[in-house]
Nucleic acid binder design. Structure first.
Lengths: 223, 223
DNA sequence: TGCCCATCGATTGTCGACAATATGGAGAAA
DNA sequence: TTTCTCCATATTGTCGACAATCGATGGGCA
C-alpha cells in the first residue's frame, strides 16, 4: 500500500497495519472504542503487542487515547478535515516545489504515464470510482517521492494519506469532476517537467484548496 | 515545556516525556542505543511501559527502531536537518498565513510584547544565548497557536520543535545575529497585525530558509 | 421523587517470566 | 593469517496474571 510491504516481522507491526487498514476501510467505525481484549483475541495475539500498535496509531493521529479510558477511532468532523487539507496544502505544495527541482527525467516520464492511465480509466470505467481514487493517490504519492525529502514523504504517505482515505470513505466522495482533477494534474506535471518550482507549488496548492472547497460544499449540501 | 504539563498520569507517558527530555538535552547522545533493561531500571519501571514510550518517540521521529535490534536515538546529519528545515518552512509558512487571518487582537498584542522582551534580552544578556533561543521558540510557538489549526500545532510543537532543539544542541548554534532574527520577527508580526496572510507567509518562509542557509554554512566551516 | 454515595464489574495499566532473535567471539579450515 | 561457521550470551518480543482506575448500577437518605 505505502510500499513498505517488506514482510512485517513483529506481531506489533502486523497488528498496527491491520488496525490501520480496518480503520481506513471503516471496518472500525469512527468514534468506535478499541477494546484491547476484544482486538487481541480477534488478532490472536496478546495485549502487549496490541497496546504498542495502538500507541503507534495514536502517533499517526488515527486514534485518540485517553488514559484509563481507552482508545477510540478518531472522528473526522468538518473542522478536522479542514485542518487536514490546510496542512496537506502546505506539505504537498512544498513537495511539488522540491519535485520540480529534483525529480529525475525517468520519474517525470512515469508521471506522464500515470496521467495517461488515469485518463483511460476515466473514460472506460463509469462508476468504478475506486480506481480513480487510487490513481489520484498514486499521482500525489509519486510527487512526494520526487521531493527526495524523506521526512516529507513519511509525513504524507504515513499520516496524511491515511487520514485522507478515511475522509473519502466517510464522505463517500470521490472527485465529482475527475476530468477537472486530471487537467490540473497535467498542468502540475508540466510545471514539474519545466523545472518551474514556483508554479508547481502554486498549482498544487490551488488543486488541493480547490478540492477542499468542493468537498466542503458537498458536506454542507447533505447536512 | 510544550504547555502539556497537566500531570502525566501513566508511567508510559511520564517515561516518554522523560526520554524526550533526555534526548533533547543530549543526555542520551545521538545514535546511542536505548537499552530497554537499563532504561527501565533507571526509571524504576517495568519494560512494558518503557516499550510503549519508545514506540511513541518512534512516532515523533526522535528514535529509530529496528526489529529485534533495538531503538537508537536518531542521528541528525546535515541532509536530515535540511529536510527538517524544508518541512518546517512549509508548515510554519502556512501557520503564519492562518495566524494572520485568525489571530485575535489580544494574541497580536502578546506577540508584540514578546518582541520587546526579546529585544531587552538581547541587549542585557551577552552570552546568555539560551534565553534568546527559548525566546525564539516562544515566538514561533505563539504563531503556531494563532493558526487555530490543531493538527498544525501538534505537528510543530510535538515533533518539529523537538527535533529543532536537538539540532541546536548538537550544533551548539544559536542565531549568530539575534538582531537580524528579531527584525525579521518584527516584520512578520507587522504583517500579521495587518492581516496580510500572503506577506506573513512569505516573510516566515524567508526567515526560516535564511536561518537554514546560515546554519548550513556554519556546518561547512567547521567540518 | 430526586439526588448522592458506595459498591461492583469491566477495562486499562503494570509487572515478572518465558520464548525468539540478533550480536559477538572462539575455534576450525583454507 | 584470514575467513567462515557455530555456539553462547545478551537483548528484544511475547505472554499471562495481578493491580489500579473508571463507569455504572443500585440502594439509602433528604
Amino acid at each position: 500500500m505505502t510500499a513498505e510491504s517488506e514482510e512485517e516481522k513483529t506481531l506489533s507491526d502486523r497488528a498496527s497495519t491491520r488496525l490501520t487498514h480496518a480503520i481506513i476501510t471503516g471496518e472500525l467505525a469512527q468514534g468506535q472504542k478499541l477494546s484491547e481484549a476484544e482486538l487481541a483475541t480477534r488478532f490472536g495475539i496478546s495485549r502487549g503487542p496490541l497496546r504498542e500498535a495502538i500507541r503507534r496509531l495514536e502517533g499517526m493521529r488515527l486514534v485518540k487515547r485517553i488514559p484509563h479510558a481507552g482508545a477510540r477511532v478518531v472522528t473526522l468532523n468538518k473542522t478536522m478535515m479542514a485542518e487536514l487539507y490546510r496542512v496537506r496544502e502546505a506539505l504537498e505544495g512544498m513537495a511539488c516545489r522540491l519535485a520540480a527541482e529534483q525529480m529525475s527525467t525517468t520519474e517525470q516520464a512515469r508521471l506522464f504515464e500515470l496521467l495517461d492511465e488515469h485518463e483511460s480509466q476515466i473514460e472506460a470505467a463509469e462508476g468504478r470510482e475506486y480506481l480513480q481514487n487510487e490513481g489520484d493517490f498514486d499521482f500525489h504519492y509519486h510527487i512526494a517521492l520526487g521531493s527526495r525529502n524523506q521526512m516529507l514523504i513519511d509525513l504524507l504517505a504515513g499520516e496524511m494519506y491515511q487520514l485522507l482515505r478515511m475522509c473519502r470513505y466517510k464522505t463517500g466522495t470521490m472527485h465529482k469532476r475527475p476530468q477537472l482533477a486530471l487537467n490540473q494534474h497535467r498542468q502540475i506535471t508540466e510545471a514539474i517537467a519545466n523545472r518551474d518550482g514556483d508554479l508547481a507549488e502554486l498549482l498544487m496548492r490551488r488543486h488541493i484548496s480547490g478540492a477542499w472547497k468542493t468537498i466542503s460544499q458537498d458536506m454542507d449540501d447533505y447536512s
